[in-house]
Amino acid sequence: MPLYEFRCNGCGIFDEWRTMNDSSNPANCPDCQESAKRIFSIPGVRLNGALRLNKTANSEPQLVTKPATDPDKNIRAKSHGGRPWMLGH
């Protein structure tokens, strides 16, 4: 059963579990028993907790250092012969 939000004029907003068939019917306020109208609320959708996993306790970015490399050693291989992927040009 979905959870719907209702607004009572005297007490404010409250939630109530209802079937989809009863979703458009007014609800009685749990405090004053007055009739309350349903209000639109954004559904709470969570996709495998992805939003929760991405949050960190510290919002500051972490400092990442590059490993020390030998400046004389070139990581990329030098190409001899121009552009080998452009045959016939």
Score class of each variant (00 low, 15 high):
residue 3 L to P: 01
residue 4 Y to E: 10
residue 6 F to I: 01
residue 7 R to A: 15
residue 8 C to N: 12
residue 10 G to M: 13
residue 11 C to H: 08
residue 12 G to F: 06
residue 12 G to R: 07
residue 15 D to E: 13
residue 15 D to A: 08
residue 16 E to S: 12
residue 17 W to E: 14
residue 17 W to P: 02
residue 17 W to F: 03
residue 17 W to N: 05
residue 19 T to Q: 04
residue 21 N to S: 05
residue 21 N to F: 11
residue 21 N to T: 06
residue 21 N to W: 12
residue 23 S to F: 03
residue 24 S to N: 14
residue 25 N to P: 01
residue 26 P to G: 05
residue 26 P to F: 05
residue 29 C to N: 13
residue 29 C to M: 13
residue 30 P to N: 08
residue 30 P to R: 03
residue 33 Q to I: 08
residue 33 Q to Y: 12
residue 33 Q to A: 09
residue 35 S to I: 05
residue 36 A to T: 08
residue 36 A to Y: 13
residue 38 R to N: 09
residue 38 R to W: 07
residue 38 R to A: 14
residue 39 I to A: 02
residue 39 I to R: 03
residue 40 F to S: 09
residue 40 F to R: 01
residue 40 F to D: 12
residue 40 F to L: 00
residue 41 S to D: 06
residue 41 S to N: 06
residue 41 S to G: 02
residue 43 P to V: 00
residue 43 P to Y: 00
residue 43 P to C: 00
residue 45 V to H: 06
residue 45 V to I: 03
residue 47 L to A: 06
residue 50 A to F: 11
residue 51 L to R: 11
residue 51 L to P: 01
residue 51 L to N: 14
residue 53 L to S: 12
residue 54 N to L: 09
residue 54 N to D: 10
residue 55 K to V: 05
residue 55 K to N: 07
residue 56 T to P: 03
residue 58 N to R: 10
residue 58 N to W: 02
residue 59 S to T: 02
residue 61 P to V: 04
residue 61 P to D: 13
residue 61 P to S: 08
residue 62 Q to A: 11
residue 62 Q to C: 08
residue 63 L to W: 15
residue 66 K to N: 07
residue 68 A to S: 06
residue 69 T to I: 13
residue 70 D to P: 06
residue 70 D to E: 10
residue 71 P to A: 06
residue 71 P to Q: 10
residue 73 K to L: 09
residue 75 I to L: 12
residue 76 R to K: 13
residue 76 R to W: 14
residue 77 A to V: 05
residue 79 S to W: 09
residue 79 S to I: 08
residue 80 H to C: 00
residue 81 G to H: 04
residue 81 G to V: 00
residue 82 G to L: 01
residue 83 R to H: 13
residue 83 R to K: 12
residue 83 R to C: 02
residue 84 P to A: 02
residue 84 P to I: 01
residue 85 W to S: 03
residue 86 M to S: 05
residue 86 M to D: 11
residue 87 L to M: 07
residue 88 G to R: 03
residue 89 H to V: 00
residue 89 H to T: 03
